[in-house]
Design a binder for these strands. Structure first.
Length: 307
DNA sequence: AACTGACTCAACCGCGCATAC
DNA sequence: AGTATGCGCGGTTGAGTCAGT
């Protein structure tokens, strides 16, 4: 931020939103402004942002002060990349609530709605674009639900720290029955007691349960995914659900890169990249770390997704 | 090393809704 | 009831950064 502050514009603008006739600043915040804002809030608390801006001596709109505080200066903000748990939560909660960023942010302590929105727009939507499908399409939702999310769950399960919040949320989720088991074997319930999370079977994907598949692209894509998925797990559908519960049974090893690479799927196999979001593939003659975005991935998707 | 294009993310705007006055 | 204010959201901007050539 220092570099940005160094080069910052000293933009002054008249706000049509504020009642004051005073010239208001906009653009990047200076350290001095940050100090003013932090000190004032420490002394008087937040809220009443327009009055706060005036009383704190900030030539900023109340809206700008609020944004700066909530998105950057709040002491409880988390910094750094989204963890697998957070990514999983975002995917899960977005599938439940859509673009209710602030509501989603309430379940990710230290993360702001703006940060989550940026994450969604830059990371998730990017993959949708690369898949040449709409982020709201059933095809893309199936991808998230049946590949990315299980992969994230695997990563969480393989990690040392279980996230109780994730487990609790997932345990009540109707769309990802596996996460509770994957994340942790127990979770703190709202009354503070430890709640045992019982793995629940994941039913076949709704779009896949009603065979035969029509010509709808999304359904066809899901069908292709299901076909591949079953092949990868080499399990009849009823047992196949275990593949989404990496920490509960050994069949879940099908999701490890090594196991995936060991299978002879028609044109390769898929796994999420290190971010847990990007799709990669393991094809013997292409190497096993081909990252999403490479031409080979497009080829693979063309085949798998029936594009 | 220099250039370039893609990407990231803080910050902004406009709008709509809810609440307070 | 009308107005002001607070808040949330979608969309956008632009400087800095990174990766590829």
């Amino acid at each position: 931020m220092a570099a940005r502050d160094h080069h910052q514009r000293d933009v002054v603008v008249s706000s049509d939103e504020e009642s004051t006739t005073e010239q208001l600043r906009r653009g990047p915040w200076t350290v001095e402004e940050d100090v003013l804002l932090v000190n004032y809030i420490a002394a008087h608390g937040e809220g009443r942002w327009n009055a706060l801006a005036r009383c704190a001596g900030l030539r900023r709109t109340g809206k700008s002060c609020r944004l700066r505080w909530l998105n950057y200066l709040r002491p409880d903000l988390r910094r750094g990349n989204m963890t697998a748990q957070e990514q999983l939560l975002i995917l899960e909660l977005h599938s439940r609530w859509g673009n209710r960023w602030s509501k989603i942010a309430q379940h990710l302590p230290g993360r702001t709605d703006n940060e989550i929105k940026n994450y969604w727009r830059t990371r998730v939507q990017k993959h949708a674009r690369q898949l040449n499908c709409d982020v709201n399409s059933q095809r893309f939702k199936d991808l998230m639900r049946y590949i990315w999310m299980p992969r994230l769950i695997e990563r969480i399960g393989g990690g040392s720290s279980g996230d109780g919040g994730v487990a609790e949320l997932m345990s009540s989720s109707s769309s990802c029955h596996c996460a509770a088991a994957a994340s942790s074997s127990s979770s703190a319930s709202t009354d503070g007691t430890q709640q045992q999370l019982v793995p629940t079977p994941l039913p076949p994907p709704p779009a896949l349960a009603s065979a035969p598949y029509g010509n709808d692209d999304d359904t066809a894509a899901a069908a292709a995914m299901w076909t591949w998925d079953t092949a990868v797990c080499q399990q009849p559908p009823q047992q196949h659900v275990d593949c989404y519960q990496p920490t509960t049974t050994t069949t879940c090893n099908s999701w490890s890169d090594e196991s995936l690479l060991g299978l002879s799927a028609p044109s390769g196999v898929v796994y999420a990249d290190d971010m847990g979001m990007g799709m990669g593939m393991g094809v013997p003659d292409l190497g096993d770390t081909t990252m999403w975005g490479a031409g080979a991935d497009d080829l693979w998707y063309t085949q798998i997704m029936g594009l």
